[in-house]
């Protein structure tokens, strides 16, 4: 088999383009998520979208809509329970998202007539259908557009909420915008890597870039570069191993992170006496 073989198939070039787009959205957003310290929130929401997807399937509305709604429900329920009890946020999150995920699994096994839904769990970018493709692209483009337009406000919100409020920004609104964007990012990457592994897409690019630079703008660029490379590499490799595309992408992300970590360690030992 020739190493250029994958590019002869239109489903492969399509998958490469979509994964590059998804990789970009995830990378840009991951910079905020990592700096805000919301990794667990990313994990929580990504699992919590499952019941939303199943219900959307049953009702017959687009799956991303259900996923988005469930993601926001998880975030607001977490916030509400935390505010009205003494339980810490990470604990509340642990309860809410596992509860929602379990509910989703129960629904899922009850209605499993279509292999479609399993794609949500593990991703299926190589066999993605036209409708799903369009929905993914829309979710990705809208989310990316909003993040980029609001990138400075969001950065200030992550860095110094008090100052953001003092100069008249609506920080409550920014909080919910960030949560909505998180849900949007998850919805966009659901088809590519599946909701179980999507947290890797949300965290790894930002962390990789963080090790390589201490400037925010450069962090955005490096995260995007590493994420797009990992996404395309994952799709490409999965052609040869016959599937598990999502896992291949996440593995490539992890390898890039490991490389960045080694570089970081070497540089640190060179500079410290």
């Amino acid at each position: 088999m020739n190493w250029l073989d994958p590019l002869r198939y239109s489903f492969m070039t399509e998958a490469l383009m979509v994964s590059a787009l998804v990789g970009t959205v995830c990378a840009v957003f991951s910079c905020y998520l990592v700096l805000k310290g919301w990794s667990l929130m990313g994990d929580a929401i990504s699992h919590a979208v499952l019941p939303g997807v199943v219900v959307a399937y049953l009702v017959g509305i687009p799956l991303p809509v259900g996923a988005f709604a469930a993601g926001l429900l998880c975030a607001t329920a977490t916030g509400w329970i935390k505010a009205s009890t003494r339980i810490k946020e990470d604990t509340v999150m642990g309860i809410v998202f596992t509860g929602m995920f379990a509910f989703g699994l129960v629904l899922f096994t009850k209605v499993e007539t279509d292999a479609h839904l399993s794609h949500i769990l593990f991703g299926n970018i190589l066999g993605i259908e036209r409708d799903d493709l369009i929905q993914t692209v829309i979710a990705a483009v809208v989310t990316l557009g909003i993040v980029l337009a609001m990138r400075k406000d969001l950065m200030l919100f992550c860095f110094d909420t008090a100052h953001a409020r003092a100069i008249g920004l609506n920080t409550t609104m920014l909080h919910y915008v960030l949560l909505a964007l998180l849900s949007g990012t998850i919805v966009a990457s659901m088809q590519a890597v599946g909701i179980i592994l999507v947290v890797a897409m949300l965290v790894t690019p930002g962390c990789t870039a963080r090790l390589l630079t201490d400037r925010f703008d450069r962090m955005l660029i490096l995260a995007t570069a590493s994420s797009v490379i990992a996404s395309c590499l994952g799709v490409y490799v999965s052609f040869f191993v016959n599937g598990a595309t999502g896992a291949c992408i996440v593995l490539a992300q992890a390898l890039l992170f490991a490389a960045a970590f080694l570089w970081h360690q070497r540089r640190r030992s060179r500079f410290s006496v």
Partner: peptide, 25 residues
């Protein structure tokens, strides 16, 4: 303050101007 945050001195002082800038800052 999160002193590990990837911003420069210039970036931080510029944040003082955000309230005076348009939507895109």
């Amino acid at each position: 303050v999160d002193w590990t945050f990837p911003v420069s001195v210039w970036d931080v002082v510029m944040m003082g101007r955000y309230g005076h800038m348009n939507f895109l800052r």
